[in-house]
Amino acid sequence: MGLPKVAGWFGSLGVPSTLGYIVAYLELLGGIALIIGIGTRYVAAGYEMDIAYLLVAIYLVFGGEPGYSVDSALTRGKTRRA
């Protein structure tokens, strides 16, 4: 997307667009801090939701569809081909 577009998106939300640059650099520095191991507890708190989304996505890709989903209702009784 690029930093200017992120800043524009922040501006469209009614937040000062310069905050988009600040957030981007804080995320970069936070990622570096996690790799190095500086302030891990504080930095990891901001990444908690991203990791949760990643784990849910991995589960949905490899775990199959749950029995109560629309996909399973539409494909019930049909065999899948890989």
Results as ranks from 00 to 15, higher is better:
M1I: 05
G2N: 12
G2M: 09
G2D: 13
L3K: 11
P4F: 06
K5F: 03
V6R: 03
V6C: 02
V6I: 08
V6F: 03
A7C: 10
A7M: 15
G8H: 06
G8R: 15
G8Q: 12
W9F: 00
F10H: 00
G11P: 00
G11H: 01
S12P: 01
G14F: 08
V15Q: 10
V15C: 06
V15H: 05
V15D: 08
P16R: 14
P16G: 07
P16E: 15
P16D: 14
P16C: 05
P16Y: 08
S17D: 05
S17H: 04
L19R: 09
L19W: 10
L19E: 14
G20H: 07
G20A: 12
G20S: 09
G20Q: 09
I22N: 11
I22E: 15
V23E: 14
A24N: 10
Y25S: 15
L26G: 07
L26D: 10
L26F: 08
L26H: 11
E27N: 10
L28S: 11
L28T: 08
L28A: 12
L28Q: 12
L29Y: 04
G30N: 01
G31R: 12
G31M: 12
A33C: 06
A33P: 00
A33W: 01
I36W: 07
I36Q: 13
G37V: 10
T40Q: 02
T40C: 00
T40F: 01
R41F: 02
R41I: 02
Y42E: 12
Y42K: 09
Y42H: 08
Y42W: 09
V43Q: 00
V43Y: 00
V43A: 00
A44I: 01
A45P: 04
G46Q: 08
G46M: 14
G46R: 09
Y47A: 09
Y47Q: 08
E48L: 12
E48K: 15
M49D: 14
M49S: 13
I51C: 04
I51G: 01
A52T: 14
Y53H: 11
L54I: 12
L54C: 14
L54S: 13
L54R: 15
L55A: 06
L55N: 10
L55C: 02
V56E: 14
V56R: 15
V56Y: 05
A57V: 06
A57H: 07
I58Q: 15
I58C: 09
Y59N: 14
L60C: 10
L60I: 05
V61M: 13
V61A: 15
V61S: 13
G63S: 13
G63K: 11
G63N: 11
E65A: 10
P66K: 12
P66I: 03
P66N: 09
G67D: 08
S69D: 05
S69V: 02
L74K: 10
L74Y: 03
T75K: 15
T75D: 11
T75V: 07
R76A: 01
R76S: 02
R76L: 02
G77W: 04
G77S: 03
G77M: 05
G77H: 04
K78E: 09
K78L: 13
K78D: 06
K78A: 07
T79A: 13
T79L: 15
R81C: 05
R81Q: 08
A82G: 14
A82L: 13
